[in-house]
Design a binder for these strands. Structure first.
Lengths: 201, 201
DNA sequence: CTGCTGACCAAATTCGAATTTCAGTCACAT
DNA sequence: ATGTGACTGAAATTCGAATTTGGTCAGCAG
């Protein structure tokens, strides 16, 4: 048989098997032997294509991200206005990950369980209270003619959501990072958001 | 001695002690006896003011959020233009939490350790690659006169940061929530962002 | 009498040794 | 030359005993 063609086929078969097993069992419970069995090959064969179990799973994630990037480029090169393309790309990015993350549901639930349940339930209350304060300033800016927007509740929520990814308890911010750095990122996002509110001259 | 005055003082003393111990030991390692000792009172006294250890800590967080809200209102009622006030409020919100979160550094690190380290290191790479695709569409929109902005790299990063909080692996999104709901939130944030890019007529 | 306390108890957590599981290797089969 | 699964050491899991800790309450100090 050809040397490269079947090799590549096997590699994909391993990743496909990983995909299914990850969804079913999660990283911890899935063993390398499971993957081999699901892919219909011997355990040793996996180590001809990957250096470790972790490498297999990371390659699997790489493949997902590669597909996302493909989808983003697809949308990005369509004929629609740039604003519409970006809008669709942003939504696609979040929803693509939303759909892929099902695999990690178990681990995510474990993570969330480690936080105090009481804290989680108060988050929503804090969020609302803060949004209220922002909404008032928004309404204030609109009545003075400085801003143009439809609904101050929706706008306030979106503003806070947009900066939530910068909060230190967000896992998006992989490590906390330097204070200075976080502040700069926040300022960039704030500027981006606020430009949209200021009335057209 | 007076009945109410010292009582309130004690409540604050308990929360102050909690603040210091939380910073030093984190929730798990801090015992109720520790709090009592640090506050210079008996263990039983704590249960005259709070129903449980968890209640003590949640009250402590409530107090922090209350202070943040105070600060937000302060900025919100200053004489500056609304856009500037909102800008400062957004930054204050993120940085206030950044500073308060030090208490949870230990628990956060535990949480992060539970994730695959390799995954964390690839996050930055994925982020850059996706940002690149967005930057191209941005540049595209600018050269066609549709958009107005300074730096497409900075803008692309800010756009992705702004939607990062909506990603399911973000703890900001306390529970994953319904797909439909996540999509709506994402669309709201995307609209907010894009309004700022579209050239003034 | 009132407000506070720390000894006490049940439940949770920790510890450590015994046991099991599993990622990764390699001698051998095909 | 390619693929395999029995094997190995390290890591994870189990489990029961020992320890710790959240929460209570009888009694003490003021």
């Amino acid at each position: 048989m050809a040397a490269i063609a079947p090799k590549e086929g096997v590699k994909d078969a391993i990743l496909d098997a990983t995909d299914r097993l990850l969804a079913r069992y999660g990283y911890r419970k899935m063993t390398v032997e499971d993957i081999a069995h699901e892919a219909g090959i011997g355990k040793g064969t996996i180590y001809l294509h990957f250096t470790s179990k972790e490498e297999v799973v990371l390659s699997h994630v790489d493949r997902i991200v590669e597909r996302l990037k493909e989808r983003l480029r697809e949308i990005g090169s369509s004929g629609a206005p740039a604003a519409e393309r970006l809008r669709l790309m942003l939504i696609a990015r979040v929803m693509f990950r939303f759909d892929s993350i099902q695999h990690y549901t178990q681990s995510l639930n474990d993570l969330l369980a480690a936080l105090r349940p009481g804290l989680l339930s108060r988050r929503a209350i804090y969020f609302e209270a803060e949004a209220q304060i922002f909404a008032e300033v928004l309404a204030n800016g609109r009545s003075s003619g400085e801003f143009v927007f439809d609904d101050e509740q929706v706008t306030a929520h979106a503003m806070l959501q947009a900066t939530n990814g910068l909060l230190p308890y967000s896992l998006s911010t992989t490590e906390l990072g330097e204070r200075q750095e976080v502040e700069q990122r926040t300022a960039d996002v704030a500027d981006l958001i606020l430009r949209g509110l200021i009335g057209r001259k």
